[in-house]
Simulated scan of single mutants.
Amino acid sequence: MSEPATETLSVIVEREIAYAPEKIWRALTQPHLIAEWLMNNDFQPVMDHRFNLRGDWGAVDCQVTAVEPNKTLAYTWAAMGLESVVTWTLTPTSTGTHLRMEQSGFRPDQQQAYQGAKFGWRKFFAGIERVVGGLS
């Protein structure tokens, strides 16, 4: 029995970060800060804005699909045959912010991309914490 083609996988990473959502939002939306933890980019937190993330290995084509300052950010993430959506959710807690990232849309035959994303996002989260910790 093969799985239906509509069956997709998601990578979800969640962290408690001891900073306010406003600070984390800056790291997620300001191009010079995004470059510090993710990749060089021409991002703008504006609905339908198209942007690229550029790494040594190539580029990701993206388009903003949701912007709710300090709460939610989503954008498409298309690279090397992968058509996915990255959704960030920031929830205030008593000690800071619960940050959740979900990248959805991995097909079952995209195990390499899926495993790579699982590894990569954990690394990126560590970078976000480092960047946010350096903000005044």
Score class of each variant (00 low, 15 high):
Leu28Ala: 08
Thr29Val: 04
Thr29Lys: 07
Thr29Pro: 00
Gln30Glu: 15
Gln30Tyr: 06
Gln30Ile: 07
His32Asn: 11
Leu33Cys: 03
Ile34Leu: 09
Ile34Thr: 00
Ile34Val: 13
Ala35Tyr: 03
Ala35Asp: 08
Glu36Arg: 14
Glu36Leu: 10
Trp37Pro: 04
Leu38Ser: 09
Met39Thr: 04
Met39Glu: 04
Asn40Pro: 02
Asn40Asp: 15
Asn40Trp: 05
Asn41Phe: 12
Asn41Glu: 10
Asn41Gln: 11
Asn41Tyr: 15
Asn41His: 13
Asp42Gln: 06
Asp42Glu: 09
Phe43Ser: 00
Phe43Glu: 00
Gln44Val: 08
Gln44Arg: 15
Gln44Leu: 12
Gln44Ser: 12
Pro45Arg: 13
Pro45His: 13
Val46Ser: 08
Met47Tyr: 05
Asp48Ile: 02
Asp48Asn: 14
Asp48Gln: 12
Asp48Glu: 14
Asp48His: 12
His49Met: 01
His49Lys: 09
His49Leu: 01
Arg50Trp: 03
Arg50Gln: 11
Arg50Met: 00
Phe51Thr: 00
Phe51Asn: 00
Phe51Pro: 01
Phe51Leu: 03
Asn52Gln: 14
Asn52Ala: 08
Asn52Cys: 09
Asn52Phe: 11
Gly55Gln: 07
Trp57Gly: 08
Trp57Leu: 13
Gly58Glu: 10
Gly58Gln: 12
Gly58Ile: 15
Ala59Ser: 15
Val60Gly: 01
Val60Met: 09
Val60Tyr: 12
Val60Arg: 08
Asp61Gln: 13
Cys62Leu: 07
Cys62His: 07
Gln63Lys: 13
Val64Asn: 06
Val64Ile: 11
Val64Gly: 04
Val64Ala: 02
Thr65Ala: 05
Ala66Trp: 02
Glu68Lys: 13
Glu68Ala: 13
Glu68Thr: 12
Glu68Phe: 03
Pro69His: 09
Pro69Ala: 10
Pro69Lys: 08
Asn70Cys: 10
Asn70Gly: 00
Lys71Leu: 07
Thr72Cys: 11
Leu73Phe: 06
Leu73Ile: 04
Ala74Glu: 12
Tyr75Gly: 00
Tyr75Glu: 00
Tyr75Gln: 01
Tyr75His: 14
Thr76Asp: 09
Thr76Trp: 10
Trp77Ser: 01
Trp77Asn: 02
Ala78Trp: 11
Ala78Ser: 13
Ala79Leu: 04
Met80His: 13
Gly81Ile: 03
Leu82Ser: 07
Leu82Phe: 06
Glu83Lys: 10
Ser84Glu: 00
Ser84Asp: 00
Ser84Cys: 10
Ser84Ile: 01
Val85Gln: 12
Val85Thr: 15
Val86Trp: 06
Thr87Leu: 01
Trp88Phe: 14
Thr89Ala: 09
Leu90Thr: 05
Pro92Arg: 01
Pro92Asn: 08
Thr93Gly: 08
Thr95Trp: 08
Thr95Gly: 11
Gly96Ala: 09
Thr97Leu: 08
Thr97Arg: 06
Thr97Lys: 10
His98Arg: 15
His98Glu: 13
Leu99Val: 14
Leu99Met: 10
Leu99Asp: 07
Met101Arg: 03
Met101Leu: 15
Glu102His: 04
Gln103Phe: 04
Gly105Ala: 03
Arg107Pro: 02
Arg107Leu: 14
Pro108Ile: 05
Pro108Ala: 06
